[in-house]
Design a protein around this nucleic acid. Structure first.
Length: 110
DNA sequence: GCTGTGACTCCTT
DNA sequence: AAAGGAGCCACAG
């Protein structure tokens, strides 16, 4: 019954994020087989006391840190990400690319 | 059991 | 790029 618990699957999905990479809350939820439960992912990370949990690799869907900019938690997450080799600029991770705007792809300077 | 809240996400201005 | 609004789910009062 270990991995049958949704919470365990979510935490497992977070631990599965390789060092140097990041994932969105919604993405983690999807990987755990729980689409639409991004908020639950966030809450689990908040209450989890597992020191080995790479919670800092989980970002918002737009590639930004979910904490208020400048807060202690925000600072620590940015620091941990840089320690992972992830480039953080202005609270945003360099990799994440919002390709949610299909119009820009079709009508923009494509 | 209803209400407010939040480490969320998507769509529309 | 940014802001407003609706939808969403788990939890505390």
């Amino acid at each position: 019954m270990a991995l049958t618990d949704p919470a365990d699957r979510i935490l497992a999905a977070v631990r599965a994020i390789p060092r140097g990479e990041v994932a969105g809350y919604g993405e983690v939820a999807r990987r755990a087989g729980l689409p639409g439960r991004a908020r639950w992912v966030a809450r689990l990370l908040a209450v989890s006391d597992d020191p080995g949990l790479p919670w800092h690799r989980v970002l918002r869907s737009d590639g930004r840190i979910a904490f208020p900019a400048g807060s202690d938690a925000w600072e620590e997450q940015a620091r941990r990400l840089r320690a992972d080799g992830v480039e953080v600029v202005g609270g945003r991770v360099r990799i994440a690319r919002a390709e949610r705007s299909l119009d820009a792809e079709v009508w923009g300077p494509g």
